[in-house]
């Protein structure tokens, strides 16, 4: 069964291309949500295996979405991968993967093979 990934990012073009890439790599079913305010609702109806979340978005930012997911028992356990175009050189130098708790932060531009590896790890194929 394909693993379900929810992409939440206000950049429609970016989400579209990421979806194409994930689907092409095989084994992923991807849903896009470009409105962060709808992200939680989308997660509730889609019930993804993992959520890929942009940090800087209008309305609710990635952190807000994440916090809200945490308050809903059925969604709290879903692993989240954060993407960010912010350059915080101390946390994300050399495209390093900054890890905090169960959450991963990857820098944009996204290294696709790294993202695929990360997803492979957090939602292994059964």
């Amino acid at each position: 069964m394909a693993r379900k990934i929810l992409l939440v990012d206000d950049e429609a073009g970016f989400t579209q291309l990421l979806k194409m890439n994930l689907e092409k790599s095989g084994g992923y079913e991807v849903k896009i949500e470009n409105d962060s305010m709808q992200a939680v609702a989308a997660a509730r109806s889609f019930m993804p295996d993992a959520i890929v979340l942009d940090v800087v978005m209008p309305g609710m930012d990635g952190g807000d979405v994440q916090a809200q997911l945490q308050t809903i028992p059925s969604l709290a356990k879903i692993p989240v991968v954060m993407l960010t175009a912010l350059v915080d050189s101390t946390e994300l130098s050399e495209g390093a993967v900054a890890q905090a708790g169960n959450q991963l932060v990857l820098p944009k531009p996204v290294n696709l093979s790294l993202l695929l590896r990360v997803l492979e790890e957090i939602v292994p194929m059964e």
Partner: peptide, 24 residues
């Protein structure tokens, strides 16, 4: 610079994914 970086990195991210897709 931080502001510009953020604004530039988003389109770059899109471009890179496009290249990734076409490379397959």
């Amino acid at each position: 610079a931080a502001g510009v970086a953020h604004e530039v990195k988003n389109p770059l991210a899109l471009l890179l994914l496009g290249v990734d897709y076409l490379s397959e």
